[in-house]
Design a protein around this nucleic acid. Structure first.
Lengths: 196, 196
DNA sequence: CGAGCGCTTGATTGAGTTCAAAAATCGTGG
DNA sequence: CCACGATTTTTGAACTCAATCAAGCGCTCG
């Protein structure tokens, strides 16, 4: 819970007392590598705040192929907002890539906190807007950039993930095959590019 | 302004009196076909609610290619939320595809209306969540679907736009070239597919 | 009526996929 | 700590979908 409290203090500008009073009702939970926090078809009841570890959310298309929507390392939220907000079955599954401890945040918590603290409400609104910005950016990349550009963008934005996430998952996130990503990397290496 | 008032009544569950009091401060404006409502590089000060006509928002990548983000027919909002919310220069341009009348909605209006009417606040929140759902769906399509599937999805969702929007713009929205879209359509026609 | 724009068609190219198999790495039990 | 099986990554060859380049047609609007 410490990470989340710290996060609230930083981003929501709440006092330590306010944070204690808010978070006293929250549960945290630990999942082993490979465990599922959400299965496609279920309604996503929570936003998962990652205290420690690493999550991924992904969909499976009609040909059985996985498409990674998001990685969630420390201090990130992973959820299916649409499912949670509209109480609809989710297309997403959420899985722990590493042993992971999360804080469970449900809709009731959000509305209570928003009602009690204007700062929290603004923080929440800002998170939504940031999410939109990020989705929009990804659409732009998918529309306009080659596999290589998308990969370069990825390692620039998430250099640490490049080390923690298997390559085939990065390929899935980028929308290419593992073979293609391997070739992209080979090409970059040939041209003297050093990721680390 | 009538469309917008009607829209608020339907979606925000506000009374006619509330709506009158709210919208009295709003401006509406008409643009000719080809006119720009926003140029890339400017901060997007408004959300444009389309009363009548048709807008498009689009970006231009470093190779000079246009990528259409969104079409805005009657009763839709067109804006760059990120630019408006964070007061950053926009990557988008917004242009009238037809002669178009819009209602100009600025951030101040949103916060006033949200403060005065909880119904409006919920309506606004819901619009944000819908936006996220729509963006997420588009990412899924771009990751998993072929040009043909994306086109079929488009005409299913926006059958009227198929008639009002030039084909090369639809191609741009789908992330393919006009030539490719022409071939996709030819193929569909051969297999006895009737869009209208 | 002509210039320009949008759409189509054809030929060629290219980025990325698919299928197959080898090489490298990981993890787990003995 | 090592060994062995499984997973991941790499490499190769053939193939596919869509892009590019180029040319022609039809429409409209100036």
């Amino acid at each position: 819970m410490e990470q989340y409290k710290h996060f609230l203090q930083e981003k929501a500008a709440l006092t330590p007392e306010e944070i204690e009073s808010l978070t006293s009702s929250l549960q945290s939970k630990t999942f082993r590598k490979g465990e599922f926090l959400l299965h496609a078809g279920e309604v996503c009841a929570y936003a998962f705040f990652v205290e420690k570890g690493l999550l991924r959310s992904f969909t499976i298309d009609e040909t059985g192929k996985e498409h990674i929507i998001q990685f969630g390392p420390e201090n990130w939220f992973v959820t299916d907002r649409s499912s949670a907000y509209f109480s609809e079955p989710s297309d997403f599954s959420i899985e722990a890539i590493e042993d992971t401890t999360v804080v469970l945040i449900d809709a009731a918590f959000i509305s209570r906190a928003s009602a009690a603290y204007p700062h929290f409400m603004r923080f929440n609104e800002k998170a939504l807007q940031n999410h939109i910005r990020q989705l929009q950016k990804r659409i732009n990349l998918l529309l306009s950039a080659t596999a290589e550009k998308r990969y370069l963008d990825f390692i620039r934005l998430y250099p640490d993930l490049t080390l923690r996430v298997p390559q085939w998952m990065i390929a899935s996130y980028l929308g290419i095959t593992p073979e293609s990503l391997s070739r992209v990397r080979k090409e970059l290496a040939k041209n003297n590019f050093k990721p680390h």
